[in-house]
Amino acid sequence: MVHSSIPLFWRLRKAKYRLEGTKCRKCKSVFFPPRSFCSRCRRKGEIECFPFSGKGTIISYTIIRTPPEGFEKQSPYAVAIVKLDEGAQISGQVIGDLKEVETGKRVSAVFRKMYEDGPQGVINYGLKFALTG
């Protein structure tokens, strides 16, 4: 089972639902997933909130056919590493026809159900990617 809890999802809601990352005002590095400490400027860095557009390009992908717990119903599904237009890279599922998923294709983030924590658990939502051309 993916480690998940209501406090965890509440804590990460801005990043998970709105793709809010961070940026260092000093060196202009952007971070997604968000970092609260600039790894380049270290203590001299000035971290601020930085919303990403959700648009990006697939730099590699795979089709998961042996899923972990919680993802059994979705299998097979595509997961890609997406280079966001603003500069950071993130892993995410790509929805739609599996045969269409390719390196180099453009994608855009969309809000979707991620997985269920069993029959009684919370339904976890988050961002996936849709092919845009």
Binding site: P68, I90, S91, Q93
Partner: peptide, 21 residues
């Protein structure tokens, strides 16, 4: 856990991403 496992990645999936690249 927060950004790889949470999207349904597995270890073979991570190495598959490297393989394709």
């Amino acid at each position: 856990q927060e950004w790889e496992s949470a999207v349904g990645l597995t270890f073979v999936g991570l190495y598959a991403l490297m393989t394709n690249a």
